[in-house]
Amino acid sequence: MDKVIFDEFSKIRILEPQSYDESEKLKEQCQDFITKINDFSSIVSFFLDMINEKSQQVEKEKLLTIGLRIKVENQQEQRKVKLNRLLFHIGQRQAELDRLIAYTESLEKVKREQLLFIDSFGSK
């Protein structure tokens, strides 16, 4: 390997022509490989960017969904409170109605008694 070789173009070579050709092929293959790795890296970078974007969209939708769920739960609680308030008012109105019915019945009883009393004086 210590010998100096001249190629067909009269250039000085340290490697034998066959070794030189093989090293050139290897160099080209390495460059092709590097190009493919760079392309692959670009594709991976593109997909990572897309995945990050989708991840941010998912997080945004997730927060929106959580907010809506809390809002629905609050509305359910508000409906329960409103229902209880309405039931309380219905109970109050029912009690007032019962009192007024009893008062009306007592007034009607007094009216009948007075009519009977008037009839008893009128027939005498």
Rank of each mutant, 00 (worst) to 15 (best):
C30E: 14
D39S: 15
L97R: 11
D21N: 10
D119N: 12
E59M: 04
E61S: 10
Q57P: 00
R79Y: 05
D119F: 06
L63S: 13
S55N: 10
L48V: 02
I5L: 06
Q78D: 10
L87W: 00
F47D: 06
E22Y: 03
K109L: 14
K36G: 07
L15G: 02
E53L: 09
D49I: 00
I51F: 09
K54R: 06
C30K: 14
D49V: 00
D21P: 02
S23D: 09
R93W: 04
F121D: 04
T65A: 15
L115S: 05
P17S: 14
I51V: 12
K54Q: 08
N38R: 14
E24H: 04
L48M: 09
V4W: 07
T35P: 00
Q29C: 06
I118H: 08
Q57T: 02
F121G: 01
S55K: 08
Q94W: 01
Q29K: 12
I70M: 07
T65W: 05
M50H: 10
L15E: 13
S120G: 01
K25H: 06
E113L: 11
Q114I: 07
K124S: 09
T65M: 10
S55F: 09
V81K: 09
V44A: 13
I5R: 13
V4H: 07
L15I: 00
R79V: 02
E59I: 04
Q92H: 03
Q18N: 11
K109T: 11
V58Y: 06
L97I: 09
I101W: 02
E77P: 01
T104F: 12
K54P: 01
F47G: 00
E59C: 02
D2L: 08
I12G: 00
E24L: 11
M50K: 15
F46D: 15
T35V: 06
S123Y: 08
P17N: 12
E105W: 03
V81E: 08
K27M: 01
E105N: 15
L48Q: 13
V72D: 01
Q18G: 05
Q114C: 03
T104P: 00
S19G: 01
R13V: 02
F88H: 14
S19M: 12
K111T: 04
S42L: 13
R93V: 07
I37T: 06
V81G: 00
K11Q: 15
E105L: 12
E108D: 13
F40D: 12
K25N: 09
L48R: 09
K111F: 06
D119M: 07
P17Y: 12
D32P: 01
F40A: 12
K111H: 07
H89V: 05
K71R: 13
D98C: 02
R93D: 11
I43N: 10
T35M: 08
Q31Y: 05
V44Y: 06
I37S: 05
R85S: 10
E16M: 07
I12D: 00
Y20R: 10
Q76D: 14
K109E: 15
E22H: 06
E24T: 05
